[in-house]
Amino acid sequence: MSHPIGAVSETLLYLNGVTVSFDGFRALNSLSLVLEPGEMRAIIGPNGAGKTTMMDVITGKTRPDEGSVVFGADTDLTKLDEPAIAALGIGRKFQKPTVFEPHTVWDNLLLALAGDRRPRFTLLARETPSERRRIEEILATIRLTEQRHRRAGDLSHGQKQWLEIGMLLAQQPQLLLVDEPVAGMTDAETAQTAELLREINRTRGVVVVEHDMHFVRALGVKVTVLHEGSVLSEGSIDHVSADPKVVEVYLGR
């Protein structure tokens, strides 16, 4: 899909013709995607469609062979590494919950709080009252206030997922990338997670990669279907599930 250049400044994230290949295998094939500020987008697609690679490209883990990735007005993400991109305000939640297990819930959030990341600062840093307030707020949002002094490693799977989302909130990102947030969750937890994401979406852009169609439907947002590294279809959940190309990829062959 093409996009008028003049509109770039109004977008939050803009991928244009991104191609990534590993040993001849094209994980992303001229992928283009536009995300408006404050938008929530669901990305679906079969295994190997390039969903995770797309996240890797946006967060600086993988460099694209071709194409551009622009964040905000004119920041070229392909020139930056992971910490720099994180500092710009792009948070990422991994498929498997990755929290710092030996640390308490509180310390996990403390490490994630926006602030100076340099060793010379952290060596002497002390918790400030405003930091404590922020952590309390987030603890309330992710419903872990009671668990604040427990080791993150001792939390349940769902609690870890939330803690990770809480850590993302603590980063105060403008854009959140969430990879399969409800995998392995109970129905109740899934519903709560959908609620949480909608809440987050009030103030920032969110990209959700998900397999669970019920969950995607519950989110009720624009859906992009990826297939073999490029966009197959885009639109509302009803629109894409009626698309014959999507039906063929998911059910055919």
Partner: peptide, 10 residues
């Protein structure tokens, strides 16, 4: 010298 490339290695 001859790195193995691919998703799995990444």
């Amino acid at each position: 010298m001859f790195p193995l490339k691919g998703r799995a290695v990444e």
